[in-house]
């Protein structure tokens, strides 16, 4: 695995948004800071973090909707400048599934129209019959059949779960190698969430598609990315990256620890922690950040070391961005 070229490789990605401030001085918000991430073919990576930690921005950079302020993106070893660069191999190889299935489909176009256009756009020589056959095949894969029943409908006539499946069909219609799924199940009824996740798992196994699963929910991430990795994000940085099973059972970074403990467990006999290992519940601000650790205000293990620039260190299970890792790990014993 180590010797293979990653499917997608992000190197030191920074993202700065300009926020119109006062007349004289614009404010700059450092949304992503020094993100490096490798995604291999057929792999599932869960991006987990609080709202505002930059996980959606990172997803949009991967799909090419945003251009990073600095940093490099390599697709199968080739440098990529942006999705609108047709010469690049990543053309149409990365697709995006959004959170709100209602907003992701044009309300005035039928499902058929929404599915037909991208396929025809990619395969300009295909006749209508060929495209129709492809659509039929997609509807079989996502489990909506007989397909005529759904194709002639408008988005508002379908249920949330069905719309999410349509989004899935649209994403795989261009046979991408990587799908970025931004909270794909957070707006879906509980009883249907798993079936959507199962469908994505199936696509991952059968079609060997890689997935980047963006979510704030560790439980569904654990289910979906069972054999994959997790990248825990905090204020625009990946603070911990490792196999998801290990990270959840033995979290290293102080933030990951708090996050894991905060997740409610569907079992009343389970006794979770009453107090989270955090100094305050207040999420730090992205504005006026200093060089040092972004988590230091909330961290129980904070020392003067934390004001320096952070580097990644290895714990037994993961890459961790924390200066006092050894102290943190020692406290366990």
């Amino acid at each position: 695995m180590e010797n293979k070229t990653p499917l997608l490789s992000l190197k030191n990605i920074n993202m700065v948004f300009k926020k119109p401030g006062s007349l004289l001085k614009d404010q700059y918000i450092h949304v992503l800071r020094d993100i490096s991430l490798d995604i291999y073919a057929g792999e599932i990576i869960a991006l987990v973090g609080e709202s505002g930690c930059g996980k959606t921005t990172l997803g949009k950079i991967i799909t090419g909707l945003y251009k990073p302020t600095s940093g490099e993106i390599y697709f199968e070893g080739n440098k990529v400048s942006g999705i609108f660069d047709k010469k690049v191999t990543s053309f149409n190889e990365i697709q995006f599934i959004q959170q709100d299935s209602y907003a992701a489909l044009n309300p005035v176009r039928t499902i058929y129209q929404s599915l037909y256009a991208p396929i025809k756009n990619k395969h300009k020589k295909w006749s209508k019959k060929e495209v129709d056959a492809k659509i039929e095949e997609l509807m079989q894969i996502i489990g909506l059949y007989p397909s005529e029943q759904y194709l002639s409908k408008y988005p508002h006539q379908l249920s949330g779960g069905q719309r999410q499946r349509i989004l899935m069909a649209r994403a795989i219609s261009l046979e991408p190698k990587l799908i970025v799924a931004d909270e794909p199940v957070s707006m879906i009824d509980v009883s249907l969430r798993l079936s959507i996740l199962n469908l994505m798992k199936e696509l991952n196994e059968k079609l060997k598609m890689s997935f980047v699963y963006i979510s704030h929910d560790l439980s569904t991430s654990r289910y979906f990315a069972a054999n994959g990795k997790v990248a825990v994000m905090y204020l625009g940085e990946i603070v911990e990256l490792g196999q998801i099973a290990d990270v959840i059972s033995h979290p290293s970074h102080p933030y990951t620890r708090a996050l894991v403990q905060a997740v409610p467990v569907p079992d009343p006999t389970y006794k979770g922690a009453d107090e989270l290992p955090l100094k305050s519940m207040q999420l730090g601000s992205l504005e006026d950040r200093t060089e040092g650790c972004s988590f230091k205000e909330r961290c129980l293990y904070c020392t003067s070391e934390c004001n320096k620039k952070q580097t990644y260190q290895s714990s037994k299970t993961a890459q961790v961005l924390c200066c006092n890792l050894s102290t943190v790990l020692d406290k366990d014993k």
């Binding site: 079936s195 289910y223 467990v265």
Partner: peptide, 20 residues
């Protein structure tokens, strides 16, 4: 059964068939 958890076995988790 349809609610994944961060502890325990994930293989027991399964969705409810059909739709709301």
């Amino acid at each position: 059964n349809a609610t994944p958890s961060i502890i325990g076995n994930i293989d027991d988790v399964r969705p409810i068939d059909g739709r709301p």
